[in-house]
Nucleic acid binder design. Structure first.
Length: 130
DNA sequence: ATCGTGACCTAAA
DNA sequence: GTTTAGGCCACGA
């Protein structure tokens, strides 16, 4: 679990000249996503908040888009929007894959929305307790 | 270098 | 209650 750059001052993407390809933002997002317990779900906003960029939750989604390039498999199915709706299901290999994975984790999905989403919500900022 | 886009969120009408 | 608009940052072309 790499240290997330929470509340870091404005640091350019390629701040570390030693390592040309350091996608801190992506890695952080992926790290958080991987730490989502099985059967739980979180939101882009929560991750963004944990990373300190709550104002730009969109980037979290962007990171998820790049998650496809991540080496370890990223449980992106556990990341949904604020409404608990599987907005990114269409970005999966198959539109139904996300729902199936969630159901496999024990999360009931109905109408492209996580049932009892509020109950299954997993806040990284709370769990990781900065 | 600029421009457009995006798996979002919040607030206002 | 719904719908609309604005904002935010990173990435690809």
């Amino acid at each position: 679990m790499p240290k997330p750059s929470s509340k870091l001052p404005k640091q350019p993407t390629n701040a570390v000249k030693s390592e040309p390809k350091t996608y801190t933002f992506f890695e952080d997002v992926w790290a958080v996503t991987r730490q989502i317990p099985k059967g739980r779900v979180t939101t882009y906003g929560a991750i963004a908040n944990y990373l300190g960029t709550k104002l730009s939750a969109r980037m979290v989604g962007w990171a998820m888009n790049a998650a496809h390039t991540a080496k370890p498999k990223i449980p992106a199915q556990r990341v949904v929007n604020r409404n608990g709706m599987l907005t990114g299901k269409m970005h999966f290999k198959t539109p139904t894959l996300m729902q199936e994975l969630l159901e496999k984790d024990g999360v009931a999905v109905e109408n492209d929305t996580v049932v009892e989403f509020k109950k299954l919500f997993w806040d990284p900022a709370l769990a990781l307790a900065i």
